[in-house]
Amino acid sequence: MVVKKQERESLIHERYLRHHKKFPHVWCAGCGIGIVMGAIVRAVDAVGLSNDEVAMISGIGCSGRMPVYVDFNTMHTTHGRALAFATGLKMVRPEMKVIVVMGDGDALAIGGNHFIHAARRNIGLTAIIINNNVYGMTGGQYSPTTPTHAYATTAPYGNIEQPFPICQLAQAAGAAFVARSTVYHARELSRFIAQAIQKEGFSVVEAVSYCHTTYGRINKLGSAVEMMRHLKDKGVTQKTFEALAEEERADKIVRGVFVDRDIPEYTRLYDEIIARAQQTVANGRTA
């Protein structure tokens, strides 16, 4: 059994990564992004999609580099705009599975407007937000998910802003599917991503990660291993979380599927618009 499983894993890597061309990657040793990438390709494999029907779109930042490494239709766009590019692609290629990979600064600061509006439209994109609480590629500036009081190169006296709760934001804005896991809980993360890909409508998966190179160092949180251990210790299921006393909840990372609802998907609704418009023409009216 064990051998068989290894064979399957090696097949996944052969099938989905541009392994012979584009490695080694740009990410720091110990970074969680690679785990998210692995979770995505395992999810694509589990769902049974061919490489050709998948597009991966990214913005700018460490996460922005992911499309280079995966053997899909890939596009590395401008900072914060990945969802808007993906919206155009999905509109004209509704049969494609469009996965949008973003960081927390990318998706929620410069791209915050696009994020809430993609959710509001409920367009069939899968948004994966790798949340490491910091701008990593530019060297450790505070982001929209940096905890209050934490330090960053641009918050040398501590952060006075509140972090965005990504999942609640997605839910309120109208997403059809919202889930959160961590890079420690890689199998669960992959499962959530598979669910998200299969969901018709706008789906969001927050992949909680870390940046030991910038955020970890500035806030004295230790090595990648220690930061990973933090995710292991603090990442709890919704059920566990609900059983906790109020004072125990504060530092927990709640994992789970928070939203899974059936609402009409945008490109399907637009097909109805086309039918209505063409009916109008057929009836000899100009609308």
């Binding site: 590019f85 919206t87 155009g88 407007n113």
Partner: peptide, 18 residues
């Protein structure tokens, strides 16, 4: 779209889609 930045992005995405 939600603004002109997104409009231009969507146009490019659509063109990439053919």
């Amino acid at each position: 779209m939600e603004d002109e930045i997104a409009s231009m992005a969507a146009v490019i995405g659509a063109s990439v889609g053919g």
